[in-house]
Write a protein that binds this DNA or RNA. Structure first.
Lengths: 227, 227
DNA sequence: TATCAAAGTGTAAAAAACACACGAAGGCAA
DNA sequence: TTGCCTTCGTGTGTTTTTTACACTTTGATA
Protein backbone atom coordinates (compact mmCIF):
# COMPACT_ATOMS: atom_id res chain seq x y z
CA UNK A 1 0.00 0.00 0.00
CA UNK A 2 2.49 2.60 -1.08
CA UNK A 3 0.06 5.49 -1.53
CA UNK A 4 -0.79 7.23 1.70
CA UNK A 5 -2.62 10.44 2.42
CA UNK A 6 -3.37 12.51 5.48
CA UNK A 7 -7.14 12.20 5.00
CA UNK A 8 -9.15 9.30 3.59
CA UNK A 9 -9.97 9.68 -0.07
CA UNK A 10 -12.84 8.53 -2.21
CA UNK A 11 -12.06 6.33 -5.15
CA UNK A 12 -12.89 7.94 -8.47
CA UNK A 13 -14.48 6.07 -11.37
CA UNK A 14 -16.09 6.80 -14.71
CA UNK A 15 -19.16 5.06 -16.09
CA UNK A 16 -20.42 5.29 -19.65
CA UNK A 17 -23.97 5.16 -20.88
CA UNK A 18 -23.63 4.12 -24.50
CA UNK A 19 -26.64 4.56 -26.74
CA UNK A 20 -27.10 2.92 -30.10
CA UNK A 21 -29.95 2.69 -32.57
CA UNK A 22 -30.78 -0.40 -34.61
CA UNK A 23 -33.46 1.14 -36.79
CA UNK A 24 -36.26 0.26 -34.44
CA UNK A 25 -35.46 0.82 -30.81
CA UNK A 26 -32.98 2.80 -28.78
CA UNK A 27 -30.40 0.49 -27.24
CA UNK A 28 -27.98 0.69 -24.33
CA UNK A 29 -24.75 -1.22 -24.02
CA UNK A 30 -24.21 -3.10 -20.77
CA UNK A 31 -21.54 -5.45 -19.52
CA UNK A 32 -21.89 -8.41 -17.24
CA UNK A 33 -19.82 -8.02 -14.10
CA UNK A 34 -17.29 -10.77 -13.50
CA UNK A 35 -16.39 -9.74 -9.96
CA UNK A 36 -18.09 -8.95 -6.67
CA UNK A 37 -19.91 -6.88 -5.71
CA UNK A 38 -22.91 -7.45 -7.96
CA UNK A 39 -21.12 -10.39 -9.61
CA UNK A 40 -22.97 -11.57 -12.74
CA UNK A 41 -25.19 -8.51 -12.72
CA UNK A 42 -25.40 -6.16 -15.66
CA UNK A 43 -23.70 -2.79 -15.30
CA UNK A 44 -22.55 0.22 -17.27
CA UNK A 45 -19.06 -0.06 -18.70
CA UNK A 46 -16.61 1.90 -16.58
CA UNK A 47 -13.77 1.71 -14.12
CA UNK A 48 -11.23 3.57 -12.05
CA UNK A 49 -9.71 6.84 -13.16
CA UNK A 50 -5.92 6.73 -13.22
CA UNK A 51 -4.13 9.49 -11.48
CA UNK A 52 -2.37 10.70 -14.60
CA UNK A 53 -5.28 10.73 -17.06
CA UNK A 54 -8.14 13.18 -17.56
CA UNK A 55 -11.70 12.13 -16.89
CA UNK A 56 -12.52 12.14 -20.59
CA UNK A 57 -9.52 9.95 -21.32
CA UNK A 58 -10.53 7.56 -18.59
CA UNK A 59 -14.02 7.27 -20.02
CA UNK A 60 -12.69 6.53 -23.51
CA UNK A 61 -10.15 4.07 -22.22
CA UNK A 62 -12.61 2.13 -20.10
CA UNK A 63 -15.14 2.08 -22.89
CA UNK A 64 -12.64 0.63 -25.29
CA UNK A 65 -11.19 -1.85 -22.80
CA UNK A 66 -14.55 -3.23 -21.83
CA UNK A 67 -16.44 -3.11 -25.09
CA UNK A 68 -13.93 -2.52 -27.88
CA UNK A 69 -15.84 0.62 -28.88
CA UNK A 70 -14.53 4.01 -29.85
CA UNK A 71 -16.91 6.88 -30.25
CA UNK A 72 -16.91 10.36 -31.72
CA UNK A 73 -19.54 11.52 -29.33
CA UNK A 74 -18.69 11.33 -25.66
CA UNK A 75 -19.95 13.89 -23.22
CA UNK A 76 -19.85 14.26 -19.50
CA UNK A 77 -23.25 13.64 -17.97
CA UNK A 78 -23.25 14.07 -14.21
CA UNK A 79 -21.19 13.06 -11.21
CA UNK A 80 -22.76 10.62 -8.79
CA UNK A 81 -21.47 10.90 -5.28
CA UNK A 82 -23.83 9.55 -2.66
CA UNK A 83 -21.94 7.93 0.16
CA UNK A 84 -23.16 4.34 -0.05
CA UNK A 85 -23.49 3.88 -3.77
CA UNK A 86 -20.72 1.30 -3.69
CA UNK A 87 -21.01 -1.16 -0.79
CA UNK A 88 -17.25 -1.59 -0.46
CA UNK A 89 -16.12 1.96 0.12
CA UNK A 90 -16.70 5.53 -0.94
CA UNK A 91 -16.68 5.72 -4.71
CA UNK A 92 -17.54 8.83 -6.69
CA UNK A 93 -18.37 8.21 -10.31
CA UNK A 94 -18.27 10.68 -13.16
CA UNK A 95 -20.85 9.45 -15.65
CA UNK A 96 -20.53 9.98 -19.39
CA UNK A 97 -22.86 9.39 -22.21
CA UNK A 98 -21.84 8.25 -25.65
CA UNK A 99 -23.59 7.84 -28.98
CA UNK A 100 -22.41 5.24 -31.47
CA UNK A 101 -23.32 4.37 -35.02
CA UNK A 102 -24.81 1.06 -36.11
CA UNK A 103 -21.50 -0.37 -37.33
CA UNK A 104 -20.15 0.04 -33.84
CA UNK A 105 -23.30 -1.48 -32.46
CA UNK A 106 -22.75 -4.78 -34.21
CA UNK A 107 -19.03 -4.76 -33.39
CA UNK A 108 -19.72 -4.44 -29.71
CA UNK A 109 -22.06 -7.37 -29.81
CA UNK A 110 -18.99 -9.54 -30.35
CA UNK A 111 -17.41 -8.48 -27.08
CA UNK A 112 -17.87 -11.50 -24.87
CA UNK A 113 -19.53 -9.90 -21.92
CA UNK A 114 -21.05 -6.83 -23.54
CA UNK A 115 -24.61 -6.81 -24.77
CA UNK A 116 -27.12 -4.33 -26.16
CA UNK A 117 -30.47 -3.97 -24.46
CA UNK A 118 -33.43 -1.97 -25.68
CA UNK A 119 -34.14 0.84 -23.23
CA UNK A 120 -37.69 -0.38 -22.92
CA UNK A 121 -36.57 -3.75 -21.61
CA UNK A 122 -33.60 -3.43 -19.30
CA UNK A 123 -32.33 -5.97 -16.78
CA UNK A 124 -31.81 -4.92 -13.19
CA UNK A 125 -28.51 -3.11 -12.85
CA UNK A 126 -25.61 -3.03 -10.41
CA UNK A 127 -24.90 -0.09 -8.07
CA UNK A 128 -26.93 3.04 -8.85
CA UNK A 129 -26.54 2.45 -12.57
CA UNK A 130 -30.29 2.51 -13.12
CA UNK A 131 -30.30 6.10 -11.85
CA UNK A 132 -27.41 7.00 -14.09
CA UNK A 133 -29.19 5.50 -17.05
CA UNK A 134 -32.37 7.41 -16.32
CA UNK A 135 -30.40 10.63 -16.09
CA UNK A 136 -28.74 9.86 -19.41
CA UNK A 137 -32.03 9.14 -21.13
CA UNK A 138 -33.51 12.39 -19.91
CA UNK A 139 -30.48 14.22 -21.15
CA UNK A 140 -30.57 12.52 -24.53
CA UNK A 141 -34.24 13.43 -24.99
CA UNK A 142 -33.54 17.01 -24.03
CA UNK A 143 -30.51 17.32 -26.25
CA UNK A 144 -32.20 15.81 -29.24
CA UNK A 145 -34.73 18.61 -29.29
CA UNK A 146 -32.20 21.40 -29.46
CA UNK A 147 -29.14 19.85 -31.03
CA UNK A 148 -28.87 17.77 -34.19
CA UNK A 149 -27.13 14.91 -32.45
CA UNK A 150 -29.32 12.31 -34.09
CA UNK A 151 -26.74 11.86 -36.81
CA UNK A 152 -24.33 10.39 -34.32
CA UNK A 153 -26.63 7.41 -34.05
CA UNK A 154 -27.21 6.81 -37.75
CA UNK A 155 -24.96 5.32 -40.44
CA UNK A 156 -23.08 7.78 -42.68
CA UNK A 157 -25.78 7.44 -45.34
CA UNK A 158 -29.35 7.44 -44.17
CA UNK A 159 -32.87 8.18 -45.30
CA UNK A 160 -35.21 10.72 -43.84
CA UNK A 161 -37.47 7.95 -42.68
CA UNK A 162 -34.61 6.43 -40.70
CA UNK A 163 -33.94 9.80 -39.12
CA UNK A 164 -37.59 10.13 -38.24
CA UNK A 165 -37.73 6.61 -36.75
CA UNK A 166 -34.80 7.57 -34.54
CA UNK A 167 -36.49 10.69 -33.27
CA UNK A 168 -39.65 8.75 -32.63
CA UNK A 169 -37.76 6.07 -30.75
CA UNK A 170 -35.95 8.54 -28.52
CA UNK A 171 -38.85 10.87 -27.90
CA UNK A 172 -41.33 8.05 -27.58
CA UNK A 173 -44.01 9.63 -29.74
CA UNK A 174 -44.98 9.50 -33.40
CA UNK A 175 -44.14 12.52 -35.56
CA UNK A 176 -45.84 13.85 -38.64
CA UNK A 177 -43.94 12.84 -41.75
CA UNK A 178 -44.35 16.02 -43.75
CA UNK A 179 -43.62 18.37 -40.91
CA UNK A 180 -40.62 16.34 -39.86
CA UNK A 181 -39.09 16.35 -43.32
CA UNK A 182 -39.75 20.03 -43.81
CA UNK A 183 -38.02 20.86 -40.55
CA UNK A 184 -35.14 18.44 -40.97
CA UNK A 185 -34.31 19.87 -44.38
CA UNK A 186 -34.75 23.47 -43.30
CA UNK A 187 -31.44 23.50 -41.41
CA UNK A 188 -29.50 22.98 -44.61
CA UNK A 189 -27.54 20.31 -42.83
CA UNK A 190 -28.51 17.32 -44.94
CA UNK A 191 -26.84 16.68 -48.27
CA UNK A 192 -28.77 14.50 -50.72
CA UNK A 193 -26.68 11.80 -52.37
CA UNK A 194 -27.01 10.37 -55.85
CA UNK A 195 -27.77 6.98 -54.37
CA UNK A 196 -31.07 5.57 -53.32
CA UNK A 197 -31.82 3.10 -50.63
CA UNK A 198 -33.73 0.12 -52.01
CA UNK A 199 -35.44 -2.16 -49.58
CA UNK A 200 -38.50 -4.20 -50.37
CA UNK A 201 -41.01 -3.95 -53.18
CA UNK A 202 -41.68 -0.25 -53.07
CA UNK A 203 -40.32 3.09 -54.03
CA UNK A 204 -36.66 3.47 -52.98
CA UNK A 205 -35.72 6.30 -50.63
CA UNK A 206 -33.34 9.17 -51.19
CA UNK A 207 -30.13 8.79 -49.19
CA UNK A 208 -28.55 11.71 -47.36
CA UNK A 209 -25.37 12.37 -45.50
CA UNK A 210 -25.00 15.25 -43.12
CA UNK A 211 -22.71 18.20 -43.59
CA UNK A 212 -20.06 18.09 -40.87
CA UNK A 213 -18.89 21.63 -41.59
CA UNK A 214 -22.30 23.17 -41.00
CA UNK A 215 -22.76 20.85 -38.06
CA UNK A 216 -19.62 22.16 -36.38
CA UNK A 217 -20.66 25.74 -37.06
CA UNK A 218 -24.01 25.17 -35.45
CA UNK A 219 -22.38 23.35 -32.57
CA UNK A 220 -20.25 26.40 -31.82
CA UNK A 221 -22.89 29.06 -31.90
CA UNK A 222 -25.59 26.88 -30.34
CA UNK A 223 -28.37 25.16 -32.23
CA UNK A 224 -32.06 25.12 -32.44
CA UNK A 225 -32.96 21.77 -33.86
CA UNK A 226 -36.42 21.38 -32.48
CA UNK A 227 -38.63 18.92 -34.22
CA UNK B 1 -0.40 9.36 7.02
CA UNK B 2 -2.79 6.69 8.14
CA UNK B 3 -4.81 6.37 4.94
CA UNK B 4 -3.13 4.17 2.40
CA UNK B 5 -4.36 2.72 -0.88
CA UNK B 6 -3.02 0.31 -3.45
CA UNK B 7 -3.17 2.90 -6.23
CA UNK B 8 -2.63 6.66 -6.08
CA UNK B 9 -5.84 8.61 -5.76
CA UNK B 10 -6.89 12.04 -6.91
CA UNK B 11 -8.07 14.48 -4.28
CA UNK B 12 -11.71 15.45 -4.68
CA UNK B 13 -12.98 18.98 -4.18
CA UNK B 14 -16.12 20.99 -4.78
CA UNK B 15 -16.21 24.57 -6.04
CA UNK B 16 -19.24 26.83 -6.05
CA UNK B 17 -20.11 29.53 -8.53
CA UNK B 18 -22.51 31.74 -6.60
CA UNK B 19 -24.56 34.23 -8.58
CA UNK B 20 -26.36 37.20 -7.10
CA UNK B 21 -28.20 40.16 -8.52
CA UNK B 22 -28.10 43.66 -7.06
CA UNK B 23 -30.70 45.21 -9.31
CA UNK B 24 -28.24 46.29 -11.92
CA UNK B 25 -25.60 43.73 -12.71
CA UNK B 26 -25.11 40.03 -12.27
CA UNK B 27 -22.57 39.37 -9.53
CA UNK B 28 -20.33 36.45 -8.57
CA UNK B 29 -19.05 35.72 -5.11
CA UNK B 30 -15.31 35.13 -4.79
CA UNK B 31 -12.99 34.58 -1.88
CA UNK B 32 -9.43 35.65 -1.47
CA UNK B 33 -7.09 32.72 -0.94
CA UNK B 34 -5.07 32.82 2.25
CA UNK B 35 -2.78 29.93 1.39
CA UNK B 36 -0.52 28.81 -1.43
CA UNK B 37 -0.87 28.01 -4.21
CA UNK B 38 -2.32 31.18 -5.69
CA UNK B 39 -2.05 32.91 -2.30
CA UNK B 40 -3.90 36.24 -2.25
CA UNK B 41 -5.59 35.46 -5.56
CA UNK B 42 -9.36 35.41 -5.91
CA UNK B 43 -11.01 32.03 -6.24
CA UNK B 44 -14.35 30.30 -6.14
CA UNK B 45 -15.44 29.17 -2.67
CA UNK B 46 -14.85 25.45 -2.28
CA UNK B 47 -12.76 22.79 -0.65
CA UNK B 48 -12.19 19.11 -0.10
CA UNK B 49 -14.99 16.57 -0.06
CA UNK B 50 -15.03 14.53 3.12
CA UNK B 51 -15.19 10.82 2.72
CA UNK B 52 -18.48 10.50 4.58
CA UNK B 53 -20.47 13.31 2.94
CA UNK B 54 -22.22 13.54 -0.40
CA UNK B 55 -21.03 15.96 -3.04
CA UNK B 56 -24.06 18.18 -2.56
CA UNK B 57 -23.46 18.28 1.18
CA UNK B 58 -19.83 19.15 0.65
CA UNK B 59 -20.78 22.03 -1.63
CA UNK B 60 -23.26 23.40 0.90
CA UNK B 61 -20.83 22.99 3.75
CA UNK B 62 -17.94 24.68 2.01
CA UNK B 63 -20.15 27.48 0.84
CA UNK B 64 -21.35 28.17 4.33
CA UNK B 65 -17.92 27.82 5.91
CA UNK B 66 -16.28 30.20 3.52
CA UNK B 67 -19.00 32.75 2.93
CA UNK B 68 -21.66 32.24 5.60
CA UNK B 69 -24.23 31.71 2.85
CA UNK B 70 -26.99 29.15 2.61
CA UNK B 71 -28.92 28.78 -0.60
CA UNK B 72 -32.09 27.14 -1.82
CA UNK B 73 -30.76 26.76 -5.28
CA UNK B 74 -27.65 24.67 -5.65
CA UNK B 75 -27.10 22.53 -8.68
CA UNK B 76 -24.24 20.44 -9.93
CA UNK B 77 -22.58 22.06 -12.92
CA UNK B 78 -19.73 20.00 -14.30
CA UNK B 79 -16.73 18.07 -13.09
CA UNK B 80 -13.33 19.45 -13.96
CA UNK B 81 -10.63 16.83 -14.16
CA UNK B 82 -7.69 17.83 -16.27
CA UNK B 83 -4.46 16.51 -14.83
CA UNK B 84 -2.55 19.69 -14.04
CA UNK B 85 -5.35 21.98 -12.93
CA UNK B 86 -3.84 22.08 -9.45
CA UNK B 87 -0.05 22.50 -9.42
CA UNK B 88 0.39 20.47 -6.25
CA UNK B 89 -1.17 17.19 -7.19
CA UNK B 90 -4.08 15.64 -9.04
CA UNK B 91 -7.29 17.29 -7.92
CA UNK B 92 -10.66 16.65 -9.48
CA UNK B 93 -13.27 19.25 -8.72
CA UNK B 94 -17.02 18.92 -8.92
CA UNK B 95 -18.33 22.39 -9.67
CA UNK B 96 -21.71 23.62 -8.48
CA UNK B 97 -23.64 26.71 -9.22
CA UNK B 98 -25.84 28.51 -6.76
CA UNK B 99 -28.31 31.37 -6.95
CA UNK B 100 -28.91 33.61 -3.94
CA UNK B 101 -31.31 36.39 -3.14
CA UNK B 102 -30.30 39.97 -2.43
CA UNK B 103 -30.55 39.59 1.36
CA UNK B 104 -27.92 36.88 1.16
CA UNK B 105 -25.87 39.06 -1.14
CA UNK B 106 -25.43 41.77 1.43
CA UNK B 107 -24.83 39.26 4.23
CA UNK B 108 -22.00 37.68 2.33
CA UNK B 109 -20.34 41.02 1.88
CA UNK B 110 -19.60 40.96 5.59
CA UNK B 111 -17.55 37.80 5.33
CA UNK B 112 -14.01 39.04 5.70
CA UNK B 113 -12.45 37.52 2.65
CA UNK B 114 -15.52 37.12 0.46
CA UNK B 115 -16.47 39.73 -2.07
CA UNK B 116 -18.98 40.19 -4.87
CA UNK B 117 -17.75 41.03 -8.34
CA UNK B 118 -19.83 42.00 -11.34
CA UNK B 119 -19.43 39.36 -14.04
CA UNK B 120 -18.40 42.07 -16.44
CA UNK B 121 -15.42 43.04 -14.32
CA UNK B 122 -13.76 40.02 -12.78
CA UNK B 123 -10.28 39.77 -11.32
CA UNK B 124 -7.93 37.08 -12.53
CA UNK B 125 -8.74 33.82 -10.81
CA UNK B 126 -6.82 30.95 -9.25
CA UNK B 127 -6.59 27.48 -10.81
CA UNK B 128 -8.98 26.93 -13.73
CA UNK B 129 -11.70 28.87 -11.95
CA UNK B 130 -12.13 31.23 -14.87
CA UNK B 131 -13.14 28.22 -17.01
CA UNK B 132 -15.53 27.04 -14.35
CA UNK B 133 -17.08 30.46 -14.16
CA UNK B 134 -17.51 30.67 -17.91
CA UNK B 135 -19.20 27.29 -17.91
CA UNK B 136 -21.51 28.43 -15.15
CA UNK B 137 -22.45 31.62 -16.94
CA UNK B 138 -23.28 29.73 -20.10
CA UNK B 139 -25.41 27.34 -18.11
CA UNK B 140 -27.20 30.16 -16.32
CA UNK B 141 -28.02 31.87 -19.60
CA UNK B 142 -29.30 28.65 -21.05
CA UNK B 143 -31.35 27.76 -18.02
CA UNK B 144 -32.92 31.16 -17.73
CA UNK B 145 -34.50 30.77 -21.14
CA UNK B 146 -36.30 27.55 -20.38
CA UNK B 147 -36.74 27.57 -16.63
CA UNK B 148 -38.17 30.28 -14.39
CA UNK B 149 -35.13 30.36 -12.15
CA UNK B 150 -34.95 34.13 -12.18
CA UNK B 151 -37.00 34.22 -9.00
CA UNK B 152 -34.15 32.62 -7.10
CA UNK B 153 -32.18 35.80 -7.63
CA UNK B 154 -34.86 38.29 -6.63
CA UNK B 155 -36.25 39.26 -3.22
CA UNK B 156 -39.54 37.63 -2.16
CA UNK B 157 -41.46 40.67 -3.36
CA UNK B 158 -40.42 42.17 -6.64
CA UNK B 159 -41.70 44.27 -9.50
CA UNK B 160 -41.94 43.24 -13.12
CA UNK B 161 -39.34 45.83 -13.97
CA UNK B 162 -36.91 44.23 -11.55
CA UNK B 163 -37.55 40.86 -13.14
CA UNK B 164 -36.96 42.32 -16.56
CA UNK B 165 -33.72 44.01 -15.44
CA UNK B 166 -32.52 40.65 -14.23
CA UNK B 167 -33.24 38.95 -17.52
CA UNK B 168 -31.54 41.74 -19.36
CA UNK B 169 -28.49 41.55 -17.11
CA UNK B 170 -28.11 37.82 -17.54
CA UNK B 171 -28.88 37.64 -21.24
CA UNK B 172 -26.97 40.80 -21.98
CA UNK B 173 -29.60 42.31 -24.26
CA UNK B 174 -32.51 44.69 -23.83
CA UNK B 175 -36.01 43.23 -23.91
CA UNK B 176 -39.28 44.78 -24.98
CA UNK B 177 -41.26 45.83 -21.94
CA UNK B 178 -44.72 44.95 -23.18
CA UNK B 179 -43.77 41.60 -24.61
CA UNK B 180 -41.79 40.73 -21.51
CA UNK B 181 -44.66 41.48 -19.17
CA UNK B 182 -47.16 39.66 -21.33
CA UNK B 183 -45.00 36.57 -21.34
CA UNK B 184 -44.02 36.71 -17.70
CA UNK B 185 -47.63 36.91 -16.61
CA UNK B 186 -48.82 34.26 -19.07
CA UNK B 187 -47.34 31.44 -16.98
CA UNK B 188 -49.69 32.18 -14.13
CA UNK B 189 -46.73 31.98 -11.79
CA UNK B 190 -46.75 35.53 -10.48
CA UNK B 191 -49.15 36.58 -7.77
CA UNK B 192 -49.85 40.32 -7.51
CA UNK B 193 -49.71 41.69 -3.97
CA UNK B 194 -51.74 44.48 -2.45
CA UNK B 195 -48.57 46.45 -1.89
CA UNK B 196 -46.84 48.79 -4.24
CA UNK B 197 -43.19 49.60 -4.50
CA UNK B 198 -42.56 53.32 -4.20
CA UNK B 199 -39.19 54.60 -5.24
CA UNK B 200 -38.57 58.09 -6.49
CA UNK B 201 -40.92 60.75 -7.80
CA UNK B 202 -42.98 58.66 -10.17
CA UNK B 203 -45.75 56.14 -10.36
CA UNK B 204 -45.23 53.27 -7.89
CA UNK B 205 -44.91 49.73 -9.24
CA UNK B 206 -47.06 46.72 -8.50
CA UNK B 207 -45.30 44.15 -6.33
CA UNK B 208 -45.49 40.43 -7.05
CA UNK B 209 -44.42 37.24 -5.38
CA UNK B 210 -44.15 33.98 -7.23
CA UNK B 211 -46.27 30.94 -6.62
CA UNK B 212 -44.01 28.19 -5.27
CA UNK B 213 -46.63 25.51 -5.80
CA UNK B 214 -46.97 26.17 -9.50
CA UNK B 215 -43.22 26.60 -9.69
CA UNK B 216 -42.65 23.11 -8.29
CA UNK B 217 -45.22 21.65 -10.65
CA UNK B 218 -43.51 23.23 -13.61
CA UNK B 219 -40.13 22.12 -12.34
CA UNK B 220 -41.27 18.51 -12.33
CA UNK B 221 -42.82 18.32 -15.75
CA UNK B 222 -40.24 20.58 -17.36
CA UNK B 223 -40.79 24.22 -18.20
CA UNK B 224 -40.85 26.49 -21.13
CA UNK B 225 -40.12 29.90 -19.73
CA UNK B 226 -38.68 31.52 -22.80
CA UNK B 227 -38.67 35.26 -22.89
C1' DT C 1 -49.15 -5.36 -66.37
C1' DA C 2 -51.43 -5.23 -62.00
C1' DT C 3 -50.42 -5.02 -57.22
C1' DC C 4 -48.08 -3.66 -53.19
C1' DA C 5 -45.78 -0.64 -49.92
C1' DA C 6 -43.26 2.98 -48.64
C1' DA C 7 -41.53 7.59 -50.58
C1' DG C 8 -42.50 12.05 -51.39
C1' DT C 9 -45.07 16.39 -51.61
C1' DG C 10 -48.38 21.46 -50.36
C1' DT C 11 -51.71 24.28 -48.29
C1' DA C 12 -54.75 26.41 -45.16
C1' DA C 13 -55.74 27.47 -40.34
C1' DA C 14 -54.10 28.45 -35.76
C1' DA C 15 -50.80 29.96 -32.62
C1' DA C 16 -46.88 32.39 -31.24
C1' DA C 17 -43.61 36.07 -31.75
C1' DC C 18 -42.65 40.57 -32.71
C1' DA C 19 -42.71 45.62 -33.28
C1' DC C 20 -44.33 49.61 -31.59
C1' DA C 21 -46.41 54.62 -28.57
C1' DC C 22 -48.99 56.87 -25.30
C1' DG C 23 -51.95 57.80 -21.08
C1' DA C 24 -51.67 57.09 -15.86
C1' DA C 25 -49.81 57.80 -11.35
C1' DG C 26 -47.36 59.84 -7.85
C1' DG C 27 -43.45 62.90 -5.90
C1' DC C 28 -41.39 67.21 -6.04
C1' DA C 29 -40.48 72.00 -6.71
C1' DA C 30 -41.88 76.45 -7.96
C1' DT D 1 -52.17 74.25 -6.69
C1' DT D 2 -50.14 73.61 -10.63
C1' DG D 3 -46.93 71.93 -13.72
C1' DC D 4 -43.11 68.87 -14.44
C1' DC D 5 -40.62 64.80 -14.24
C1' DT D 6 -40.05 59.89 -14.31
C1' DT D 7 -41.36 55.38 -14.33
C1' DC D 8 -45.53 52.27 -14.62
C1' DG D 9 -48.69 49.96 -17.28
C1' DT D 10 -51.31 48.69 -21.31
C1' DG D 11 -53.25 46.75 -26.78
C1' DT D 12 -53.14 45.88 -31.63
C1' DG D 13 -51.80 44.76 -36.12
C1' DT D 14 -48.11 42.13 -38.71
C1' DT D 15 -45.15 38.47 -39.43
C1' DT D 16 -43.44 34.08 -38.51
C1' DT D 17 -43.87 29.54 -36.93
C1' DT D 18 -46.40 25.54 -35.98
C1' DT D 19 -49.77 22.36 -36.76
C1' DA D 20 -53.06 19.33 -39.07
C1' DC D 21 -54.02 16.69 -42.84
C1' DA D 22 -54.39 13.03 -47.87
C1' DC D 23 -53.06 11.83 -52.27
C1' DT D 24 -49.70 10.79 -56.11
C1' DT D 25 -45.23 8.64 -57.29
C1' DT D 26 -41.98 5.03 -57.78
C1' DG D 27 -39.85 0.69 -58.22
C1' DA D 28 -39.96 -4.38 -57.05
C1' DT D 29 -42.38 -8.41 -57.32
C1' DA D 30 -45.73 -11.82 -58.67
Amino acid sequence: MPHAYEFPRAALTVDCVVFGFDGGELQVLLIRRGLAPFKDKWALPGGFVRVEETLDDAARRELEEETGLKTDFLEQLYTFGTVKRDPRERVVSVAYFALVKPAAVTAATDAAEAKWFPVSDLPSLAFDHADILTTALTRLRGKLTYQPIGFELLPPKFTLTQLQRLYEAVLGEPLDKRNFRKKALSYDLLIPLQEKHQEGPHRPAQLFRFDPVKYEKLKKKGFLFEI
